[in-house]
C-alpha cells in the first residue's frame, strides 16, 4: 500500500542544491463518520525558487487539501491526521508551533483562494484587508502600510488604487476582487504562492487576465507558484512542471511540455483526450473516463486507477505502482504505472 518517497534521481537537476520546498511522504487523513478518508496519501515533491508547479486532477482528487496541507493550514487535530514532512527553506512547517506557523503565513507563503466573492470579508474595506497583514508582519506604520497597499493594488493592475482602498468588497467586480486577493497574498513578498483554483469562479476572459497577471508577477518578483487546478488549459503553458493527482496520489510528474506532448500514465492520457479540441469534427462524441473516482475511505487495493483503466492487468489490482522514473529515460519525469502508455516518438519501454 505504501508509496515510497520520490527517489533521488527524479528530483530536479542538481544545479540547485537546496530546493525551496520539499514535500516528503505527506499524508492527510480526514476523520469522518464512515472512517478515515485518505485525502492525500503519500505525496512527495520538490519545488525550486521561482518555479511554477501545476497540480491537476479531477474533483475530489485531493488537490486543494494537498495545497492547504503544504501550507500547514491543516495540521494534526481532532478531525484530521497529518503525517510526513513539509520543508520550507529547510524548516519543517508541521513541526512549528502555531505562532511560528502564523509568522510564516502571510510573509513567506501566500495563498490565493478559489472564490473571490467569499475570500474577502464583506464588512471590511479593501484597504484594511491589505494593511492588516502589512502592519502585522512588516511592522509598517499606518501611513506606510497605506502607501504600500496602494502600490500593491497598482501592481496587480487595479486602476485608481487610492479610491479602491476605501471601498467595500461588494463594490468591486469578481476579477477585481481576485486581484485584491492576489495583492493580499503578495503583501509581504512571499517566496511561495499557493494558488488554489484561482480562476475557477471567474469567467473565461477574466481567467486569462488573472493567469497572465500571476505570470507577470512571478517574473517580476521571482516567487515560486503552486498552481492548483482541475483545468488542464489553465496549467498548460504556465507551469514548468505538472503533477497529475488521482485519488490522493501523484500518478505522473513531468515537465509540462513533455507531459502534454506524450503522457505516460493512462490517467493523464485519458484526461488529455477528454479535452474538447477545435479540430475535432462537429458532433463527435467527447471522450470521457468511464466509472467514477474511488471511495477514499476504502480505496481499492493496488493501483487506484485500475478499475477505470483500459490497460490494467492483474498485477495492477494486486500491487500498487510506485512513482518512479524510467530507467534510461527522462530523469525529470516520473509516473506510477505498471503498464505505461508508450511514447509515440520513442521506441518502447
Amino acid at each position: 500500500m505504501s508509496q515510497s518517497p520520490l527517489p533521488a534521481d527524479t528530483r530536479p537537476p542538481a544545479g540547485d542544491p537546496a530546493p525551496l520546498l520539499v514535500v516528503d511522504d505527506l499524508r492527510t487523513e480526514i476523520h469522518t463518520r464512515r472512517g478515515d478518508m485518505k485525502a492525500v496519501d503519500g505525496v512527495s515533491l520538490t519545488l525550486n525558487a521561482g518555479e511554477t508547479l501545476g497540480i491537476v486532477g479531477e474533483s475530489g482528487s485531493g488537490k486543494s487539501v494537498l495545497g492547504r496541507t503544504i501550507m500547514g493550514l491543516y495540521t494534526t487535530g481532532a478531525t484530521m491526521t497529518v503525517s510526513g514532512r513539509v520543508l520550507m527553506d529547510g524548516t519543517d512547517i508541521h513541526a512549528l508551533t502555531d505562532a511560528g506557523r502564523r509568522e510564516l503565513w502571510g510573509s513567506d507563503v501566500g495563498m490565493v483562494f478559489q472564490d473571490p466573492m467569499s475570500a474577502l470579508n464583506p464588512v471590511k474595506k479593501i484597504g484594511l484587508h491589505l494593511t492588516e497583514s502589512l502592519r502585522r508582519h512588516g511592522g509598517l506604520s499606518r501611513a506606510a502600510a497605506r502607501a504600500r497597499a496602494e502600490e500593491l493594488l497598482r501592481l496587480v493592475g487595479i486602476p485608481e488604487p487610492g479610491r479602491r482602498l476605501g471601498q467595500y468588497p461588494h463594490e468591486l467586480s469578481g476579477g477585481m476582487r481576485q486581484r485584491v486577493v492576489i495583492a493580499m497574498a503578495l503583501a509581504n513578498g512571499p517566496k511561495l504562492l499557493i494558488a488554489d483554483e484561482p480562476t475557477t469562479a471567474l469567467d473565461v476572459t477574466v481567467q486569462k487576465q488573472i493567469l497572465d497577471l500571476l505570470g507577470r508577477l512571478q517574473a517580476e518578483l521571482g516567487m515560486a507558484i503552486i498552481l492548483v487546478s482541475h483545468n488542464l488549459q489553465v496549467v498548460a503553458g504556465r507551469a514548468n512542471r505538472v503533477a497529475v493527482m488521482y485519488a490522493g496520489r501523484i500518478v505522473e510528474l513531468a515537465d509540462a511540455d513533455a507531459l502534454f506532448a506524450a503522457p505516460r500514465h493512462p490517467y493523464t492520457e485519458a484526461l488529455l483526450s477528454a479535452v474538447p479540441r477545435l479540430h475535432h469534427p462537429p458532433h463527435s462524441r467527447l471522450e470521457a473516463i468511464d466509472g467514477s473516482p474511488p471511495d477514499m475511505v476504502a480505496p481499492p487495493q493496488g493501483c487506484r486507477f485500475a478499475p477505470r483503466c483500459r490497460y490494467a492487468g492483474d498485477d495492477c489490482r494486486q500491487v500498487s505502482p510506485r512513482l518512479l522514473s524510467e530507467a534510461g529515460g527522462d530523469a525529470a519525469r516520473a509516473f506510477a504505472c505498471h503498464h505505461p502508455v508508450r511514447p509515440v516518438n520513442a521506441g518502447g519501454s
Partner: peptide, 29 residues
C-alpha cells in the same frame, strides 16, 4: 465557513484575531 476566515488564517491571523476582526463585525450587525 466562508473563505475569508481561512484567508485571514493564511495571512497569519491568530484565533482571537479571527474572532474579533473577522467574525465579530459580521455577527454584530
Amino acid at each position: 465557513q466562508r473563505e475569508f476566515v481561512l484567508a485571514a488564517k493564511a495571512m497569519g491571523a491568530s484565533r482571537w484575531r479571527v474572532m474579533v476582526r473577522e467574525l465579530l463585525p459580521n455577527v454584530l450587525l
